[in-house]
Nucleic acid binder design. Structure first.
Lengths: 198, 198, 198, 198
DNA sequence: CATGAATGAGACTTCATTCAT
DNA sequence: GATGAATGAAGTCTCATTCAT
């Protein structure tokens, strides 16, 4: 009987979280049994409890991990050249496995059922706004966007557009269409930044 | 012994669907037991099975009903004066109970688990695009938006923006902020419609 | 909505019992719901309770009716010409609908679960023995079977042979084979009646 | 917390099947709940599902096991000395617990409800015929029964007689009477084997 | 570390029975 | 007489969790 990962607790936990995340996304949290998750890894149920206190804890850690991954991604890829980095950020997202790419939408479905998951999401949302705003502030200082633009509102709009497009993709919107309207949207928002003032 | 609704099957079904919809949204589909739903109405479990053959059928009918309600709403409220009707449409949405307002996000969480729900959503998504596109076509004929704008892409973008903002509201975005960036966004998209060409 | 049979309680009860009997045999007692039985007749569940106090009572009456029918059949068809009447009795049985023909086997399956059904069956079994014995006694008086034959044992054997062949028919034995071995068997028993003495 | 049988899956399954078989016979399949069966063994419901995927599967396995047991019994005990072995076979049967002795009658009650059980029974019936026929063929070769006797029909008759007597025993026929008429019947059939020709 | 046997609470569903209309 | 809405008990099955090995 194979150990999850020989010796390394952290890696074992990560292996479990990866499988759990995929299953949660594909079949739902409630619909994925601990047995399913264990089988996916090639381990027995009991083993999962060596690494996570219970199923809810596993969900919590999965959400935290995915949220952090996505946040790091944003932080790394979004530079002051907003338009260009928006493009590459979106392109990078398309490479992600679905359970990561659509993690936010999945997690939103759990937000009403789980206070700890809610907390993670709300904080992450705020971080997103903060990160993008800070980049936009630089643009403003350089005079590349309107001086009276409200960078927070610009950020909120960009995020909304992004998430809305992700929702559409879950409903079948093609990657080509998605990329195109995302890019046009961001370009548009930046160009008419003065529409978003306080 | 209370009857669901005296005599009228249709009304009885609607009463059940309304309660079920609220519970599904608030606690999740799996997390809401048939007992919970029945208790909410003041009826016993068995009664639900007089009206819906099983729990999944109930979910399906709830989704169909909500989706239709929202679609009718869109069809009724969105006129050729897109900007103005966008405002009133959004305002009307804010009056809806959460389980209706956020129905699309809820349903998206079920899309991977249930083929019939998926079908409803995909069809509805296409209808949304069709409805908005047709209104935009009229604008184009009147020369109010760019002649070479792709009305389908404009619609996709508007819908994405709308849904993205809804997601943000579930994460705490205020109604004021939401209204404002929605309105600005729609205005912006229309004004720069030439950005969205084929 | 059609009344079971206009006005005539007895006929209504018989209509119900006939349908119930068929269903009980085809699907089992427990497996046949009151709804199923009612639907078969084109009536609603509630109606059945106008004629039978509950489901068990219905089973009881069905068993009593079928048992009596079969017993009358035996009494009518079995004359002192045992061999000849055995043939015609068996032929008549083959004309019966399965739920009647195999009623005894069905009822035997309920014997352990229901004291009242058990009582009916045991009494009927004794009556069978009595009826056949009495016919055999006449034969003995006429010197057509051995004077020291035990007519009770002869009867027991004949009944066992008959019932065993019925069991085989439920397992696919052809009517031709069944008739043949039944006739040969009865002939054999009569011819060697002296084997069965006290 | 008691384990069904320490460590041995096969034995655990057998323990369950034994109890289930007894309960099924005594109270009927539908009437025996999984709770009842579990309680009988001193285990909880859930445990049963570790060994049998559902209740129907349990019934199926019980039937298969009992049918095989009885078939082995026949194969082992019936030699070419048909008359003598019939006696010892019957005697051995009287030692069996009722749920085994009357298994065939019980199973016949399930034959209309369950295709897989039906298949087992039909196959077993054919095997019985084959086993007995083959023994009779030997007798025929030795000239101990009529050269033109149809051994298949002889077998069918013997089986019918046997099963019919079992039915009678369920209705109260004494063991003494049963043994006697079984033995006389078999003797009779063999002696007059020429009655059963093709 | 890992297993797998066992548990027991809880979910969905069915259905005999009642009763107001 | 007949209906059909409602009940509630009971049954099957699942699954998170525990624990001895």
């Amino acid at each position: 009987m194979p150990k999850v990962v020989k010796g390394y607790r952290k890696q074992a936990m990560d292996t479990i979280m990866e499988s759990a995340s995929r299953l949660f996304f594909e079949s739902g949290y409630q619909e994925s049994s601990m047995d399913d998750i264990a089988r996916e890894i090639g381990v027995t149920k009991g083993t999962l409890y060596l690494y996570f206190k219970n199923k809810e804890e596993l969900l919590y850690e999965v959400c935290r991990r995915n949220t952090n991954l996505l946040e790091d991604n944003l932080d790394k890829l979004v530079t002051e050249d907003i338009l260009e980095s928006a493009k590459s950020f979106f392109k990078a997202e398309l490479e992600l496995p679905e359970h990561l790419r659509f993690h936010w939408i999945f997690a939103l479905g759990e937000i009403n059922k789980n206070q700890r998951v809610r907390k993670i999401l709300l904080e992450s949302y705020e971080n997103y706004v903060k990160i993008i705003s800070s980049r936009l502030e630089v643009l403003k200082e350089r005079g590349l966007i309107s001086g009276d633009a409200d960078t927070r509102k610009l950020s909120l709009t960009m995020i909304a557009l992004h998430n809305g497009i992700m929702m559409s993709m879950m409903q079948g919107l093609s990657e080509a269409d998605a990329s195109e309207i995302f890019e046009a949207g961001i370009r548009n928002i930046l160009k008419n930044s003065s529409l978003y003032k306080n």
